[in-house]
Design a protein around this nucleic acid. Structure first.
Lengths: 147, 147
DNA sequence: TACTATTTACGAATCATTCTTAATTAGAAC
DNA sequence: GTTCTAATTAAGAATGATTCGTAAATAGTA
């Protein structure tokens, strides 16, 4: 588990001021499972700090993304979600529930690297490759099923 | 190129009423390059049919997606984009411009199928896999660079 | 302790998308 | 061709996520 000191160091290490709001947002992303939305994060923080503004949460998220402390995860829906795990990884998207699970596999990454090494794409320089693995969990991970 | 008769057949083939609005939206998606947004489509159609409503375009898009005539393409931004190509394919996302290019490669798809056949994911049934290949075009495809 | 550039609180503004309702119309039945 | 009706559209209001604006607060420096 990531403790407060590490979070503090992550933030200051990027040359950012360490504010309670930034600490709380980053901590929330690490603690909340399932790639939280801005709203999930806001709700979570408000339990301890009812005064945090939603504008602040969005601003902090933007700052953290800009400084590569978190990444945005795009979904079919119109809400953005956030991920505090930075090592290259892929996502399992369940078509029935809104759970997004991380998928790491070094062999797969090697396979892809080798493939694109042999099959360069004309006029394009690859920086990274992310798989969207779409399907269904057999046993769902959370309650919020749709419709 | 897809002609009007084919478009008509695609729509009626799904048991949908063939309306001028549906014809125009689907035609626009085939004609407009680069995975248009709802707004791109609306603008395009308004050149010939200034009376089409934006609500209508969204409604038609929703219907076409529901009936598998087009698919939604998610991006980092908060606008949804649409794609009329249905065979499995992947996307090149340029980090500098908003051009999204299709990438087809059967060998790659075979590689992935084989990989996940040998490496099943616990508790998850895969339906399809899409790669987001992120990087940069060496020569950009369109003008709308960001900031 | 004081200073100042940065950050936050607050809510208004924006923008993509959805919803509502009455009017229109495609396609079926005659 | 006419009639009928359920499906579709027009028009714009409503919604919901996100961004913006600005005055007040504050982290980090001196």
């Amino acid at each position: 588990m990531i403790d407060r000191l590490k979070i503090r160091n992550l933030i200051s290490g990027k040359g950012l001021k360490v504010t309670p709001q930034r600490m709380r947002v980053l901590e929330a992303i690490y603690l909340l499972d399932n790639h939280p939305t801005a709203e999930n994060i806001l709700e979570y923080i408000r339990r301890n700090d009812p005064n945090i503004g939603y504008g602040t949460v969005y601003k902090v998220l933007e700052t953290l993304v800009e400084h590569n402390l978190i990444v945005k995860v795009k979904t079919e829906k119109d809400v953005m979600r956030y991920d505090g795990i930075l090592e290259n990884h892929h996502h399992l998207y369940c078509k029935q529930c809104d759970y997004i699970e991380d998928y790491h596999n070094e062999k797969l990454d090697k396979l892809l690297t080798d493939f694109f090494h042999e099959n360069e794409i004309d006029n394009f320089i690859i920086e990274d490759i992310k798989l969207s693995i779409n399907g269904n969990f057999i046993i769902h991970k959370n309650k919020q099923h749709e419709s």
